[in-house]
């Protein structure tokens, strides 16, 4: 599993960016309703994030599922740590936990 060639890029992305969303499509043009929901939440919270389009590479699409031990997309990482998929992010946003997590991790959020 560790020899998956996509893992290097995933590790680099989550190490170099505070908030990374592995998603289908781009933040401007999400190609899946679940990815679009998480983009909306992140934009609403006012946090900068890197969107990685897993549809660009089958290797990446499979790789991120193995990397996170999570079978679905989208997947959100904050400071290198897996936070969850669409259901979890939406729920954490509604309870305010997402905003608290970002603050605790020292990630700037405008809202």
């Amino acid at each position: 599993m560790s020899d998956n060639p996509a893992f290097e890029q995933i590790k680099k992305d989550v190490a170099e960016n505070d908030v990374v969303l592995f998603m289908k499509g781009s933040p401007a043009f999400p190609q899946c309703g679940f990815s679009a929901t998480v983009v909306q939440v992140l934009n609403h919270v006012g946090v900068k994030f890197k969107g990685v389009n897993v549809l660009e590479s089958m290797e990446l699409r499979q790789g991120v599922k193995e990397f996170s031990n999570w079978p679905t997309i989208p997947q959100l990482y904050v400071k290198g740590e897996f936070v969850g998929g669409c259901d979890i992010i939406r729920e954490m946003f509604q309870t305010g936990e997402l905003q608290t997590l970002l603050k605790e991790k020292g990630v700037d959020a405008a809202a």
Partner: peptide
């Protein structure tokens, strides 16, 4: 926790998620 709970469900439906199920919204 939230992540662990969903992983428990994913595990129970592992074969289905690897095959026909494309999306699974969970509570």
């Amino acid at each position: 926790g939230r992540i662990e709970r969903q992983r428990m469900v994913f595990k129970a439906l592992e074969a289905e998620l690897a095959g026909q199920i494309h999306a699974l919204a969970l509570v």
